[in-house]
Design a protein around this nucleic acid. Structure first.
Lengths: 376, 376
DNA sequence: CATTGATATGAATCCTACG
DNA sequence: ACGTAGGATTCATATCAAT
C-alpha cells in the first residue's frame, strides 16, 4: 500500500477498497466510483454540486424573443434538470452498489437540488430514515427583500434498503443532546473563522466548505469505530478530518488539485480525539441473559418469591422463568405491566428478590451474572 | 349566488370563480379543480395526503400507556410511488392552470412525500421561492429510539412561473419578526388544545389539522387583502378561517361530510381581525418620481447645489437629473456611493438641498411632491 | 386561588437477535 | 429467509383532579 495520502485514479488499481483506505483519490467522482468493488463501504457522505440556477441562461428562450412564458411542454426548460438528474443518477447508482447492505448514506443539498436527489433516491430503493434540517444560526441574509431568508440546508439520511440494519447511535446522540432524544432539526453555525481553509491570498479555498460540527454529528450518530466512510465530493476534506478525529477510516474522491492539497495538509494536522462518544460507550446493550438461564446458573430458583421495589410479593418463579401471581403465569414484562396497569413494561426494572434480608434487583442480578461469565 | 356555505359539486355549475367565493365545494379535489376556469386564483394552499407508508401494526408508547395513533386514515393509502405521483401530477397540473400568472402556491408535506412533490412541481415549471421548514416545538417523540425524532414538516412555496411577480409582504414579516427579516425556518407548535376540533366523542375530528399560526404566516406573507385563496384539501377549514380572519376570500374543496360540517361551523364562528399587518400598512413603497421630473415640476433646478447631511456641497444638478461633482456626472445613487466609497448606495437618503436656509432631504421632496400630485 | 401531580396525546415510513 | 420470542423505548403541552 502506498504511503502517500493522494492517489491518482489513472495510475492505480483501486478496485480493492483496502488499497485506498485513508486516501484521497484524484479523479472524476463517477469514474472512480465505478472502479470500486461491490458492498465495501459502511457510510457515504455526499455533498454534490447544488445546481444553483443563478444565471439567466437556463430558462431564457434561445432566440431572445423574451422571457419564458411557462408552456408546460416546452422541452428546453427541462434540459438542464435532465442533465443534473442524469448526473445524480450516475453517482447515486454507484454509491448504492458499493454501499454494504446495512450501510447508510447522507446527501446534503438545498431547495435547488434536494428534491431532484430525494426523488431519485426513493426511486432507486434507498429508504429515507430522516431528512435533517441544518438550521443556520448565521445564514446569508436575503439582500433583495423578495422572499424569506434561506436559512437552512437539508440532509437526506437513507439506508441502502428498506430493511437494512443501519447504525444509529441513539444513546450517544441523546447524551450529547443533554439527555433528550435528538431531533431532525440541527441548529449549527456556518463554517467560518479559523476552521475555514484559506488560499495563499487569504480568500476562502472552497466556496461551500461544510462545518466540522455538521460532520461530527453525522459520524458520531451513524458510524462505528473503524467504519469506512466514503466522500465522493471530498472538497477540502472535512469528512476525512472528522473521520480521523473520531477513529473512523475515510476514502475521498476529488478532482481539484488545490482542494486536494488543502485537504491533505489539513488531515495530516488533524489530531485524534477518541472519547466515550466516539467509542460508543453509551451504546452498551443489557446482557442477553434469560430468566430461565438465571435459574440454571442457580442465581434464581423455582418457586422463589418475586417482589416489587416496596417489598410486596407479586408472585413466584415458575420453571420456565415466568411469574405466577396466583391467577396466571406471565413473563416478567407482561406480569409487571399487569401490576402497573400498563400495556407493556420492562420487567427487569420492576422485580426484586430477597437476598440476605435485602432487596436485590433482578436487573442487577443479570449484569452481575454477565460479568461473572465474562471473567470465566 | 347561493347563500349556503357548502356547495355540492355535482349539482352546481362552478366554472365561474365568483360563484364559489367563500364556499366549501363538496367533491373530489381533482374533479372540482378541473371544472374551474383558467387563471382565477391568487394563492393556493395545499395539504395533500402524505402517503406515510406506516406499518400496519400499532405502535406502542414507550411508557406503556397504550397505543399511538398518528395518521392511519384510508385517504392516505396508495399502492406505490407511481400511483401517488400520478395523483399529485393530476391535482398539481390543475392548480397550475387555475393560478393567476403572478400567483403562488404553498404545498406542505413531510419526507415521505415532499421529494415527490418538489420534483414534480419543478418539472411542471413551478419556481421554488423558498422551502420553508416548520420546526415543531412539540413533535411526537420517536418511541423506539431508532432514528432522529422527526420534528419538522416542509412547505414548498412556488410561483406559477420563474418570472411571476408574486406577492411577498417583506416588511410585514420583518415587523412581525421583531425587526429582523424572517427566515425559512419557522418554529411553531402543533395544533392542539382548544384549537383542535373534536368530534362528538371528544376525539380529534381530523388526524392532521394544521395550526392556525402556520396559516397566519402563509396568508400574511404572500397574499393581499381580498385575494382569493384556494385550498383543494380543505379538511376542517383552517385556511378558510384564517382567510376570513385577515380579510381574504377563500375557496375550499373537501369530500368528507364530517370535515365539511366542522369547517363550516368553525368559519361561521371566526371573527374578523383586521389590523396594520393584514392591511399591509408596512408595505408602502417610495413614490416613483425621477430627479428629472422634479426639475420639470420646478421642485429642483438645473445647476442647483446638492449637499450631504452635514451641509457639504457634493456637486450641482445637471439637466438630466444627475450630479456633477466637478469630475463627472453620475446618478444620485452612483454619486453618493462614490463619496461613501461603497459599490452602491441609495442616493435619495444621501442628498439634501438648501431651502429657506434649511437643509431639505430630496427624499422628503419626492414624498411631498407625490402627495401634491395625489391631491390633484 | 395558586400549585402540584397524574393523565392524555400528537402526519410515525419506530425492534431485533436467535433458531 | 423467515417466524418467533425476548425485551427496549418518549417529549412537550394541555387538561383536570388533588392539595
Amino acid at each position: 500500500m502506498s504511503k502517500e495520502m493522494v492517489i491518482d485514479s489513472i495510475q492505480t488499481n483501486i478496485s480493492c477498497i483496502d488499497q485506498v483506505i485513508n486516501k484521497i483519490i484524484k479523479g472524476d467522482s463517477i469514474d472512480v466510483l465505478k472502479s470500486f468493488e461491490d458492498n465495501c463501504i459502511d457510510v457515504i457522505f455526499a455533498d454534490p454540486p447544488y445546481f444553483m440556477q443563478s444565471t439567466d441562461k437556463v430558462l431564457q428562450r434561445a432566440d431572445g424573443t423574451g422571457e419564458f412564458r411557462g408552456c408546460d411542454d416546452d422541452w428546453d426548460k427541462y434540459k438542464d434538470y435532465a442533465e443534473y438528474d442524469a448526473f445524480c443518477m450516475s453517482w447515486l447508482r454507484e454509491c448504492k452498489r458499493i454501499l454494504k447492505k446495512n450501510g447508510s448514506i447522507w446527501v446534503i443539498g438545498s431547495f435547488q437540488n434536494i428534491y431532484r436527489i430525494g426523488y431519485i433516491m426513493q426511486n432507486m430503493g434507498f429508504w429515507i430514515l430522516n431528512d435533517i434540517v441544518w438550521s443556520k444560526t448565521n445564514p446569508t441574509p436575503n439582500m433583495s427583500g423578495t422572499r424569506f431568508c434561506n436559512a437552512h440546508e437539508t440532509l437526506l439520511w437513507c439506508s441502502k434498503y428498506k430493511n437494512s440494519k443501519f447504525t444509529f447511535n441513539y444513546k450517544t446522540m441523546k447524551t450529547l443532546n443533554g439527555g433528550k432524544q435528538d431531533k431532525s432539526v440541527w441548529t449549527l453555525g456556518i463554517c467560518q473563522g479559523s476552521e475555514r481553509l484559506k488560499d495563499g491570498n487569504g480568500n476562502k479555498l472552497h466556496s461551500t466548505q461544510k462545518p466540522e460540527d455538521l460532520l461530527s454529528k453525522i459520524i458520531l450518530s451513524s458510524t462505528k469505530p473503524n467504519d469506512i466512510i466514503l466522500d465522493p465530493f471530498f472538497g477540502t476534506g472535512t469528512t476525512g478530518a472528522i473521520a480521523k478525529k473520531y477513529g473512523r477510516r475515510f476514502v475521498g474522491i476529488e478532482r481539484d488539485d488545490n482542494y486536494i492539497a488543502g485537504a491533505e495538509k489539513r488531515i495530516k494536522q488533524q489530531q485524534e480525539h477518541l472519547d466515550m462518544f466516539s467509542n460508543l460507550d453509551f451504546e452498551v446493550k443489557p446482557p442477553r441473559i434469560s430468566m430461565s438461564s438465571l435459574i440454571s446458573l442457580n442465581k434464581l430458583y423455582i418457586g422463589q418469591e418475586l417482589l416489587d421495589k416496596a417489598g410486596n410479593v407479586i408472585g413466584v418463579l415458575t420453571d420456565n422463568g415466568y411469574v405466577n401471581d396466583g391467577e396466571e403465569s406471565l413473563s416478567i414484562h407482561k406480569s409487571s405491566a399487569k401490576v402497573l396497569k400498563l400495556s407493556n413494561n420492562n420487567g427487569w426494572n420492576f422485580f426484586y428478590i430477597s437476598r440476605d434480608g435485602k432487596l436485590v434487583s433482578i436487573n442487577d442480578l443479570r449484569y452481575e451474572t454477565a460479568k461473572e461469565k465474562h471473567n470465566d
